[in-house]
Computed example of a mutant assay.
Amino acid sequence: MEHDDWLEHAVRQTARAPVTIRRWFPMVARKVGDDHVEARIRLLAALPDRTEIPGLYRYGDVHERRAVVLSAGRLGVDDMLLDLARDALRSNDPRLVTAAADPAVVAALPDDEVDQALMKVIFMGIPTARVPALVARVTPLTSRRVAGFVLERVCAGREVAAEVWQVIDRYPPVAELEQIREQLHADDPERRRAAAGALARRG
């Protein structure tokens, strides 16, 4: 069976007998190839209701879980999909974290959870360019939190990515920035080096 024919067959069967998606969903990558995310979302969209979705996420591999989370943009975010996206945000897999930063999901999250998600992205070293919906929700508190993270890194003598400044400088926090500058005169040479490097990356 050709790839397109297989997918159309799977979509029809899913619509008629939702439980069969448990068979089709794991097979998608092997049957469809590079378009497996979109194909999985098509299968999810064919479901007459969403009762099968939590199980597909719970027992799926990272690619299957990622497709479930990304389906929020097509299917619309309800409490169930939002809970699954929150689970993805708690994971340590950058593929799941960035998938859960889908604009439809981010729009449904309160500010504090958006901040937590963005902080995790920065902590994990995920480029913020991959999560524009999170960056768009930056508040003055977000800027202070990220500046506090930079201060912690500097005090530990560790480097920070240049892109943190696009978050911090949305609402520059005076006190935290001054504390970072003070490390230029710290007794510890590693702190001085880290502070100079961080501030130089501010551009």
Rank of each mutant, 00 (worst) to 15 (best):
M1N: 00
H3K: 05
D4T: 06
L7S: 05
H9R: 10
R12L: 04
A17L: 14
A17F: 11
V19Q: 15
A29Q: 08
A29V: 03
K31F: 02
G33Y: 01
G33V: 01
D34G: 15
D35T: 05
D35A: 12
E38D: 08
A39V: 02
R40I: 00
R42N: 05
D49P: 01
T51K: 13
E52V: 11
P54H: 09
V62G: 09
H63E: 06
R65A: 09
R66Y: 01
R74V: 10
A85D: 06
A85V: 02
R86C: 04
N92W: 12
P94E: 14
R95Y: 14
V97N: 15
A99Q: 02
A100I: 04
D102K: 05
A104K: 14
A104L: 14
A107H: 12
L109V: 13
D112G: 08
D112R: 15
D112L: 13
D112N: 15
D112V: 15
V114K: 13
Q116N: 09
K120C: 02
I122C: 00
I122W: 01
G125D: 05
T128H: 00
V138I: 11
L141Q: 14
A147W: 05
G148F: 07
V150M: 10
L151D: 11
R153T: 10
V154T: 03
C155N: 10
A156Q: 14
V164C: 07
I168S: 11
R170W: 10
A175C: 04
L177M: 15
Q179W: 07
Q183A: 05
L184T: 04
H185Q: 12
A186P: 04
D187C: 03
A194L: 01
A195F: 00
A196S: 09
A200V: 10
A200T: 12
G203N: 14
